[in-house]
C-alpha cells in the first residue's frame, strides 16, 4: 500500500503461476501424447493438406491448428514434439547441472590442486567453439535423441562449473564457514550443510536457464536435421519444414515457434519465480 513492492510481488507470483501453468501443459502433453493427440502425428493425407487453423474459413472439424502441406495434423505433431523437448530439457538440463555444479563446488571450496585441474579442464573445453563441437560430437555419436542429450551435457557443464565455482569460492571466505570449522564440522559437511544452501539459488537459476537452452539446442539440431530421425515429430523439425512453406501455410511455422518460445521463457521465469518465493533472504 505504501510502496510498490506489494504489487511487484503479486506480479512475481502471477509470473510464477503462469509459467508453472505452461510447464504443466507441456508436461501433460508429453506424458499423454498418444491419448491427447487427436490424430496420428505421422499420418499423411494429401486430401486434407494445408488446412488452416480453426478460426479461419475452409477448415475441417477436428483439425484445430490446421495441417501441413502433407496433411499431417499440426496440433498432434506439436503434442508429440513436446515429448522430445521435455526429455531433452529434463535429462540434459539435470545431468549438466549435476556434473557442472559438483565439479564447481569442489573446485571452489577445496581450492588447491583440485581447483587447478578442474580449472584447466574448463579452459581447454571452452577453447572449442560450441556449435562446431556439437556437430562434431553428433558426427561421432550418430544422430538420435541420446546423442543430442550427450552433446548438450558434454558442452554445457562448463557453464555451471565456472559460475558455481566462483560463487562457492566467494561463500567459503565468509565467516560463517570459518565458524563451521571452529565448530568442528568436517570439510564435506561444511560444503553440503553450509555452502550448498547459499549456492543453491545460483544453481536453480542456471538450471532453469539450461533447460531452456537445451530445448533451443535440440530445436537447432533438428532444424539442421542432426537430431532425432524425421519420423519423430519435433518442434525444431516442424520449424524447419514450416520455414519452407511459410507463404502458403504460416501456421506450420508459427505454432511450434510459439510453443518453443513460451517453453524457453517459462523456464527462465520459473527460475526467478522460485527464487523470489523460496529464498529466505529475499522473502
Amino acid at each position: 500500500m505504501l510502496d510498490g513492492r506489494g504489487a511487484l510481488r503479486r506480479r512475481a507470483g502471477l509470473r510464477l503461476w503462469l509459467s508453472a501453468g505452461w510447464q504443466a501443459v507441456v508436461m501433460l502433453a508429453a506424458l499423454f501424447a498418444p491419448w491427447l493427440a487427436p490424430h496420428d502425428p505421422l499420418a499423411q493425407d494429401l486430401m486434407l493438406g494445408r488446412l488452416p487453423p480453426f478460426w479461419l474459413p475452409g477448415t475441417e472439424p477436428g483439425y484445430w491448428l490446421g495441417t501441413d502441406s502433407l496433411g499431417r495434423d499440426v496440433l498432434s505433431r506439436l503434442i508429440h514434439g513436446a515429448r522430445v523437448a521435455l526429455i531433452v530439457a529434463l535429462v540434459a538440463g539435470t545431468a549438466t547441472c549435476l556434473i557442472g555444479s559438483t565439479l564447481g563446488l569442489i573446485a571452489g571450496f577445496y581450492r588447491g590442486w583440485t581447483d587447478r585441474i578442474i580449472g584447466r579442464l574448463v579452459d581447454i573445453w571452452m577453447a572449442f567453439p560450441p556449435v562446431l563441437f556439437a556437430i562434431l560430437l553428433i558426427a561421432v555419436l550418430g544422430t538420435g535423441l541420446s546423442s543430442v542429450v550427450i552433446a548438450i551435457i558434454v558442452i554445457d557443464w562448463t557453464r555451471f562449473c565456472r559460475v558455481v565455482r566462483a560463487e562457492a569460492l566467494n561463500q567459503s571466505q565468509m565467516d560463517y564457514v570459518h565458524s563451521a570449522r571452529v565448530a568442528g564440522f568436517s570439510r564435506p559437511r561444511t560444503l553440503m550443510a553450509e555452502i550448498l544452501p547459499n549456492v543453491l539459488p545460483v544453481i536453480v537459476a542456471l538450471l532453469t536457464l539450461e533447460m531452456g537452452i537445451a530445448v533451443i539446442v535440440e530445436a537447432i539440431l533438428s532444424f539442421v536435421n542432426l537430431s532425432v530421425s524425421t519420423d519423430r515429430p519435433t518442434w525444431g523439425g516442424m520449424i524447419a519444414e514450416g520455414r519452407i512453406a511459410i507463404h502458403h501455410v504460416w501456421w506450420v511455422l508459427a505454432f511450434p515457434l510459439a510453443a518453443l518460445f513460451l517453453t524457453v521463457l517459462s523456464f527462465a521465469q520459473l527460475g526467478e519465480g522460485l527464487r523470489d518465493r523460496f529464498d529466505p533472504v529475499l522473502r
Binding site: M1, L2, D3, R5, R9, R283
Partner: peptide, 10 residues
C-alpha cells in the same frame, strides 16, 4: 530513507 525491509509494514 524509504528502505524498510519487506517484512515490515508501516
Amino acid at each position: 530513507l524509504g528502505v524498510l525491509p519487506r517484512a515490515v509494514e508501516i
